[in-house]
């Protein structure tokens, strides 16, 4: 397994979450999906490490339905 951090790492999680939801306010579904795509690409670039990105992709795919 890679160094994907699965422990809490965001300071002020409630504040971050509120800002995230706020960013989508007033957007259509397509616009929201596009915003999410841009955000993922920005964050992926910040992470950089391919092994970590692969592990994150895997984690996202394996939870939920």
């Amino acid at each position: 397994m890679s160094d994907l951090n699965l422990d809490p790492n965001i300071a002020d999680p409630d504040g971050f979450y509120a800002k995230l939801i706020e960013a989508h306010e007033g957007l259509s579904d397509d616009e929201s999906a596009a915003l999410n795509a841009r955000l993922i690409l920005l964050l992926a670039n910040q992470v950089g490490d391919r092994a970590v990105l692969d592990a994150a992709l895997e984690a996202a795919k394996t939870v939920g339905h």
Binding site: L6, P8, N9, I10, P13, Y17, I21, A59, V63
Partner: peptide, 26 residues
């Protein structure tokens, strides 16, 4: 909103397995 609901359920799905998402469950 639909997207707010999607994020909320993503947090819940992730929180079940990964500790990082638990502080986001409100």
């Amino acid at each position: 909103s639909k997207i707010s609901h999607t994020f909320r359920n993503a947090v819940l799905d992730l929180a079940e397995q990964y500790a990082f998402a638990r502080p986001l469950v409100n």
